[in-house]
Design a protein around this nucleic acid. Structure first.
Lengths: 200, 200
DNA sequence: TCCAAACGGAACGATGCGTTTCGTTTTATA
DNA sequence: TATAAAACGAAACGCATCGTTCCGTTTGGA
C-alpha cells in the first residue's frame, strides 16, 4: 500500500461509485476559494484548481463546464442570506443593510462578488446567475422599504421597488469603485432621506 | 519593390525614424476596436490585435504594456465628453443625461465601458484610469445638480456631490445588469424627485 | 556620418485551454 | 453473483495566447 502524499499531504480521493463524490466537490471549491484569496482572479484557472485539489481536469469540467460556473459555485456556497432588520425607521434600516453588506464584501469571500459582476459582463451564464441573485436580493430589500411605507413614513407615490433599486445601485457602485469605507449611515441618509415625509 | 498585401490589403507600415509612428498607433487602436465589436472581450488578445494591425508584438507591448492599457486607450479615444444641458428643472436635466449615456452605452464603442469596469475589478492600472474618468464625470454631473440648487429647486441640506453619486450609481447599475432599455425619464424621476422641494 | 530608436516579423519557452484516453474503484442493475 | 455504468485521478494531446527576445530594415537627429 504505497501512500503518496502530495504538496498538502492530502490523500488522493477515489471514486465512490457511479455517483458524485461530495469530498471531491468540497476539495475543488476549497481550492478555488484559496486560490482566489491568494492570487486573485488571474490565479483562478482550471489547471491550478485541479492541481491544488488533486483532482482530474475531466472531473472539473464535468461539473463546472467553465471558469464562470466555478466562480458562481464558490460564491453560492459562501454567500449569506441577509435578513433585513427593521430599525424602526427607513434610514437606520438601510444603514444597517449597508453596514452588513460592506462588511461582508470586505472579506475574501465577499470579494468574489466583485469578480462575479465583472465576469458577468462577458459570460452569459454568469450574467444569468447574477441576475437571479440580484432579483432575489432586490425583493428582500423592497420588502424592507415596504415596512417603512406601511408605517406611513414615505412620501406619496414612492414605489418600494424603484427605491430599492436605487439603494442597491449605491451599494454596487461603492463596491466596484473600491469605496467600501463609505460611512453606511451617511450613505443611507444621502440615498433615502429624500423620500421620507417631512416631520411637522 | 515587391509589394505584399495582407488579409486586408493594407500595406505594411515601416519605421519613420526614431519616433513613434502615429499611423501604427491608429492602426492598432482600430484593430482593437474592430476585434471588440466582432468577437467581444475574449477576442481582444494582444496576438490578434497585432495580426490584424500587421504590427509587431514588440511594438504593441512597447506602447501598451498589457491588455488593460489597450482597453483604456480604445475607450479614451472614443469616449464622448458629454455636456450636460440644463432643461430648466432637475428631473428633465437628469432624464436627458440618462437618455444620452444609455444611447452611447448601447453602441459598440460604448460597450467597451462595461469591459473597462469589469477589467478594473482585477487590474489596478485600469482601476486608476476608471477612477479618474469617474471623478471627472461626477464633477460635471454635480455641476448640473448645482444649477437646480441655485434655482432653489432642491430641499434644504442636499449635497450636489452626494446626489450626483446616486444618479451615477443608478446609471452604472443599468449598464451592468443589461437594462439600458430603462425609460430615462422614469428613472430620473425615481432617483431625484425626492430631493425636489414640494410645490405649494 | 553614424548612432539611436521605431518598425515588422519570426521564433522562443511557458502556461492555460478544453478534450481524450486509460486504468481503477464502487454502486446499481439484471 | 455477474455485468454494466458512472465517477475518479492521472497523463497526454493539439491549440492558442502570453510576454520576451532576437533580427534586419528604415529613418530622423546628433
Amino acid at each position: 500500500m504505497p501512500e503518496f502524499t502530495g504538496e498538502c499531504a492530502k490523500p488522493q480521493r477515489r471514486s465512490i461509485g457511479a455517483r458524485r463524490n461530495p469530498a471531491t466537490e468540497a476539495a475543488i471549491l476549497d481550492a478555488a476559494c484559496d486560490l482566489l484569496r491568494e492570487k486573485g482572479v488571474h490565479g483562478l484557472t482550471m489547471e491550478a484548481v485541479a492541481r491544488r485539489a488533486r483532482a482530474g481536469k475531466a472531473t472539473l469540467y464535468k461539473w463546472w463546464p467553465n471558469r464562470g460556473a466555478l466562480l458562481v459555485a464558490v460564491y453560492e456556497r459562501s454567500k449569506g442570506t441577509h435578513q433585513h432588520k427593521d430599525m424602526g425607521n427607513l434610514v437606520d434600516t438601510i444603514a444597517e443593510f449597508y453596514r452588513y453588506v460592506f462588511a461582508f464584501w470586505k472579506t475574501s469571500e465577499g470579494q468574489v462578488f466583485r469578480l462575479i459582476i465583472a465576469e458577468a459582463q462577458s459570460d452569459q451564464d454568469v450574467a444569468e446567475a447574477l441576475e437571479r441573485y440580484r432579483l432575489e436580493r432586490l425583493a428582500a430589500l423592497s420588502e424592507a422599504v415596504g415596512w417603512a411605507q406601511a408605517r406611513g413614513e414615505l412620501r406619496e407615490g414612492v414605489e418600494p421597488d424603484a427605491l430599492a433599486d436605487t439603494i442597491m445601485a449605491a451599494a454596487w457602485l461603492r463596491l466596484l469603485t473600491d469605496r467600501l469605507t463609505t460611512d453606511p449611515h451617511r450613505l443611507a441618509r444621502d440615498v433615502v432621506s429624500g423620500w421620507i415625509v417631512e416631520k411637522q
